[in-house]
């Protein structure tokens, strides 16, 4: 008989807290696997601080063998921005859901992006408020059925769904890194997260990565329908790829910068 082997999970994953608390089929596990591997491959394990927000993302509070802090409603960002100012040698990762980052805590995201805080932000977008039972979030797709939009989200009433990376890219400073990946493209997502960590460590800039993710529990989908919703509907509405900060584009193009007062 072959010798028993331990599961091949990133070493930075905390084995005692596994199986983790996320639902079966939840994309959080895949994003956190990418993050764990990225942190390990860049050799940052000893100086990384992980911070999770409220919502399902907080279920990662004991996920890693890393110093971890949990805050509420998007305050993950200002907390980490403060931490980074006091201890600039640390690598800080803010891990949030779309509810925490775009709805309840949007002002912190906007302020951090404007200040270009050297923080790596990972926002997991599953189009619903998952922990509270699947209510409509800013990112809910048009016509998508949720607990609070039983007939589908109506754009004329609730507005179109919010696109986070586009928002951040439009206010981020030159040098900031903005991208959108998906748990259906695991290798690409891991690459984005690695670049995001580098942007913070090497460039001292904000890095913002949105990861499109799954929520079979609240979508009420089986595995096939879960992938279909993610890959057919979400990928179409939220284009994957890297987004150049608009400020950089404007500077390169000259003009468009407001005149400075002397």
């Amino acid at each position: 008989m072959l010798p028993a082997r331990l599961p091949q999970m990133p070493e930075v994953w905390r084995l005692e807290s596994k199986p983790h608390k996320f639902c079966p089929g939840c994309g959080h596990g895949i994003v956190l696997k990418c993050l764990g591997e990225a942190v390990e491959e860049l050799g940052l394990v000893d100086r990384t601080v992980f911070a999770c927000d409220i919502g399902c993302s907080l279920l990662a509070w004991d996920f890693f063998n890393l110093d971890t802090v949990q805050t509420h409603h998007g305050r993950t960002l200002p907390v980490l921005a403060g931490l980074k100012r006091v201890r600039p040698e640390l690598v800080v990762v803010a891990y949030m859901g779309d509810g925490g980052a775009y709805a309840i805590g949007a002002q912190h995201l906007v302020a951090s992006a404007g200040r270009d805080d050297p923080v790596t932000v990972i926002v997991v977008n599953n189009t619903v408020y998952a922990m509270t039972g699947g209510q409509m979030a800013p990112t809910t797709l048009p016509e998508e059925k949720t607990e609070t939009t039983p007939y589908g989200r109506r754009v004329e009433e609730n507005g179109p769904s919010l696109r986070g990376p586009e928002l951040v890219a439009s206010i981020a400073s030159p040098g900031a890194y903005v991208a959108r990946g998906s748990v259906a493209r695991v290798r690409q997502l891991k690459g984005f997260i690695k670049k995001g960590l580098r942007a913070q460590v090497e460039g001292g800039h904000l890095a913002f990565i949105e990861a499109l993710s799954t929520c079979p529990t609240n979508w009420r989908t089986n595995a096939r329908e879960t992938w279909r919703f993610l890959e057919e509907k979400m990928h179409k509405h939220f284009p994957l790829g890297e987004y150049a900060p608009a400020q950089a584009v404007r500077e390169e193009g000259g003009g468009a910068q407001p005149p400075r007062k002397s």
Binding site: R5, P7, K18, P19, P24, G25, P216, N222, A223, W227
Partner: peptide, 26 residues
Amino acid sequence: PIITEDGQGRFYLYPALCKGCGLCIE
């Protein structure tokens, strides 16, 4: 793990971790 050989692969499955989501099946 439960170890199953199939085709070119040796499939290690850890029942204590598997939550039966079926993402891999698809």
